[in-house]
Write a protein that binds this DNA or RNA. Structure first.
Lengths: 181, 181
DNA sequence: CTTACCATGTAAGGCGTTACATGATTCA
DNA sequence: TGAATCATGTAACGCCTTACATGGTAAG
């Protein structure tokens, strides 16, 4: 049974820390998890429904004023299911780079096209690094009182290593393509 | 028009270098491109059909003995289409890591689970790195006679930087989780 | 008063994998 | 003779994104 839906686990993982609404979950995806994961509303809400049906989470209406709002909490069954998954070996990590793909076919275009892709790649790498460094600093500062963010910090540091590597490679690649023609 | 199918471009890119069969294309995906791209037969053969219909490639029967074999060649129309894509800015690069995902939720399990994921990650990083170093060496040795592999080499070196970063991070992470309990 | 944000959801459609089905050849 | 590799394809199914639809609230 390869390739089982991971969205369920991500949601359970997030709920294991605190109760959240579907909207909150999406926020986490776009910030804390964005480095290595993502999901849209179109997959989050249906997943929540499924988890509810399976009794892995439970819902509570916490509407404020006229704004409807459903907050989800993980159940014992959900926790067990999550823990089981966490204890199993990783199936696969994916890296899919359109940048490297276009670069690979660099023989088919002007070198200036390839250089442009590298410049763009470098720019996003630098921007991402800036964000990650900020995250690292703020996580480090709250770590003593709240050791819950220890693992979060670990993933941020992985991102920093990665993007530093990208940046270094961009410099090397730009030199390579710039000089020799 | 976001998210247009990239498989077409990959196939055209590969064919721009030499005529290939569907089987050959799959081989390239699993070797030269595997670092940053992939595709299954179930997406390759249908894509070839579409490209043929659009006159972006042409087919030739090169069956040997009783073994049927169709070799595809890129047309002028296909070349133009590929070049256009190569000149456009990259839409997105994707990184989706189940390892980092499980690690992020490390608070929910035993630290030994998290350590096991890191050990596994490190092992694959080392193995990949060994392969990439071999590729780098062989590409460097043929580069003088055949400068066509210049861009291929560039992507291999990006992979080396990446996996070196992963490896370094694994060491750091193991120390972090190992000592502080 | 209008923009941005909070909040929930659905429908259509695309893209791709897995598994299956088939058969020839090469090599040990 | 059996295993690995060459070679082509299809069908079912799953998962996800995009776009759409709706409406309340806070801030400027």
């Amino acid at each position: 049974m390869p390739n089982t839906k991971k969205t369920d686990y991500v949601i359970l993982g997030l709920l294991s820390h605190e109760p959240l609404t579907g909207y909150d979950i999406k926020q986490r995806m776009d910030t804390s998890l964005s480095l290595f994961w993502g999901a849209s509303y179109g997959s989050i809400y249906p997943a929540l429904e499924g988890l509810l049906r399976d009794k892995k989470i439970k819902a509570a209406d916490v509407s404020t004023n006229g704004r409807e709002k459903t907050q989800y909490t993980i159940t014992a069954k959900g926790t067990k299911y999550l823990k089981q998954w966490l204890s199993e070996p990783v199936e696969k990590d994916e890296f899919r780079s359109e940048t490297l793909l276009k670069l690979f076919f660099g023989n088919c275009t002007e070198p200036s096209d390839s250089l442009a892709h590298i410049v763009q790649f470098r720019k996003t790498a630098e921007e991402t690094l800036a964000v990650l460094h900020q995250m690292e600093a703020s996580l480090e500062s709250v770590l003593k009182e709240d050791p819950a963010h220890r693992y979060y910090l670990l993933t941020v540091r992985c991102g920093i290593r990665m993007y530093e590597a990208y940046e270094a490679w961009c410099g090397e690649a730009q030199k390579e393509l710039g000089t020799k023609q």
